[in-house]
Design a protein around this nucleic acid. Structure first.
Length: 422
RNA sequence: GUGAUUGUAGCUCAGUUGGUUAGAGCGCCUGGUUGUGGCCCAGGAGGUCGCGGGUUCGAGACCCGUCUUUCACCCCA
């Protein structure tokens, strides 16, 4: 409820009903990635601030207004990671990657951005991401996209659209920017405040402005594909060819530029209509990042998916519901001697692989039975003094209410007979 | 950061033009005769009405502030 025990805004606690679903998404991701021979990397939650400044770009919104930055006791500026790629690349550069070699890794974990929370947007949110680092080719970009779709498919997220575009190589930047500045110059006074600012700070971002007037102007802007160099164009064409060949449905969105400066060549995004205003559930592209202290930039391609948004999309798609934590056997104890014996019984049943819950409160029979029913136990085992005396145990099938006496050494077979039938 | 919106029992919510001991449903606990669940019945526990000020004889209701929720903008996953 509303009080001091609430977490600060935009972050939330997850209880078993939810972690259950998270584990399903994460487990599927691990399985899928292993099929592509991609292993997990775990990098720190926080890094020196310049790790992010350098790679994400200091004109980006993330760097300008969304990072959680603080000083440590050594007066170093540190930042809670706002995304995964910069840290992963820093780690790979630090470990060393010999020329012509490639690292393929995935990561799963929390990211932090100081934004106002809304549907599908948290201040601590979680991403599952993949990076192919070290080599450059349209084939690699394509496999990366195929992997992403393969995964989404495996978790029943199918009602989505893949958008792709290219930003050309970094060498194209100058001429593209020049052409755009040229084009917008006569219009800029009629555009929104944000675009007027972007005109000077980051002209590319004008392309995905949502303002209607700006959109109209942008619609007639020279297309990225016409501005980039021939080699960039050929590269992008190859990506499209491979996607066509493999039957991947996509849409080229000339306005898709994405908000991080490190992207080059292919950029892509998977969007969904039914998760609120934040429609992007995954995004990524090819990048060129030079971590602090490195002489040369590293090339890679990758994507990140927002776990919270995947969940929204899954629920909107009426994906298969998941089983919660179930109880196979509930043990009812009547009297202290029986309770003591039942501790042993519970542990031996657990060793046999059953999910066992027992009453530890010495309550009345009725109360214990009510709990057995509430937790949806398949079987209830009842043992009190008279069962102890006779060396038996009562086994009740909660499904049909039938009840039998069994000897301890026949218990396993009797329990299995019921559980296997259900 | 801007705009709107929310805050009453564990949960979902009522609470009339400000007026006595703040309610319901669900959930929880205990019973409904010896040691047996679900349905039903009875009883019970549980609330500084987000927090702080103010107006008033009197405030859960009105005013101000603050925090929080949700949503949109911005931007991104």
């Amino acid at each position: 409820m509303s009080s001091k025990s609430e977490p600060i805004p935009g972050i939330s606690d997850l209880f078993p009903e939810e972690t259950n679903q998270w584990q399903y998404l994460e487990g599927n991701a691990r399985d899928m990635f292993s099929k592509y021979s991609i292993g997990e990397i775990r990098t720190p939650i926080f890094e020196r601030t310049d790790v992010f400044l350098r790679s994400i770009g200091d004109e980006t919104d993330i760097v300008q207004k969304e990072m959680y930055t603080f000083k440590d006791r050594g007066d170093r500026s540190l930042t809670l990671r706002p995304e995964g790629t910069a840290g992963v690349l820093r780690a790979i550069a630090n470990k060393g990657l010999s020329q012509g070699d490639e690292h393929r890794v995935y990561y799963i974990g929390p990211m932090f951005r100081g934004e106002r929370p809304a549907a599908g947007r948290k201040r601590q949110f979680h991403q599952i991401g993949v990076e192919y680092v070290g080599k450059v080719s349209p084939e690699i970009d394509s496999e990366c996209i195929i992997l992403l779709l393969d995964y989404l498919n495996s978790i029943d997220i199918t009602d989505t659209k893949l958008l792709i575009n290219t930003r050309g190589v970094s060498g194209d930047r100058q001429q593209v920017s020049a052409a755009m500045l040229d084009y917008y110059k006569p219009h800029i006074d009629h555009m929104c405040e944000d675009c007027q600012r972007r005109y000077h700070t980051n002209i590319w971002r004008i392309l995905d402005c949502k303002n209607d007037d700006c959109k109209t102007i942008t619609n007639n802007a020279p297309s990225m594909i016409d501005l980039i160099s021939d080699t960039s164009k050929t590269y992008f064409d190859s990506v499209c060819d491979i996607l066509n060949h493999t039957g991947v449905q996509y849409e080229i969105d000339p306005q898709l530029v994405r908000g991080l400066d490190y992207y080059v060549h292919t950029v892509f995004e998977v969007v969904s209509n039914d998760i609120g205003a934040q429609d992007s559930i995954a995004g990524g592209g090819r990048y060129e990042i030079q971590p602090p202290g490195q002489k040369h930039p590293l090339n890679g391609v990758g994507f990140a998916m927002g776990v919270e948004r995947l969940l929204l999309a899954r629920n909107a798609n009426n994906a298969t519901t998941l089983e919660g934590i179930n109880v196979d056997i509930y043990i009812v104890s009547l009297g202290q001697p029986a309770l003591l014996k039942n501790f042993d019984l519970a542990s031996s049943l657990r060793k046999q692989g059953f999910r066992v819950l027992m009453d530890l409160e010495k309550r009345g029979m009725k109360a214990q039975m009510r709990t057995a029913n509430k937790v949806n136990a398949k079987i209830t085992l009842i043992r009190g003094q008279s069962e102890l005396d006779k060396g038996i145990i009562l086994l009740k099938n909660m499904d049909d209410s039938s009840q039998i006496n069994v000897k301890i050494d026949e218990l396993k077979a009797a329990v299995e007979a019921i559980i296997n039938r259900l």
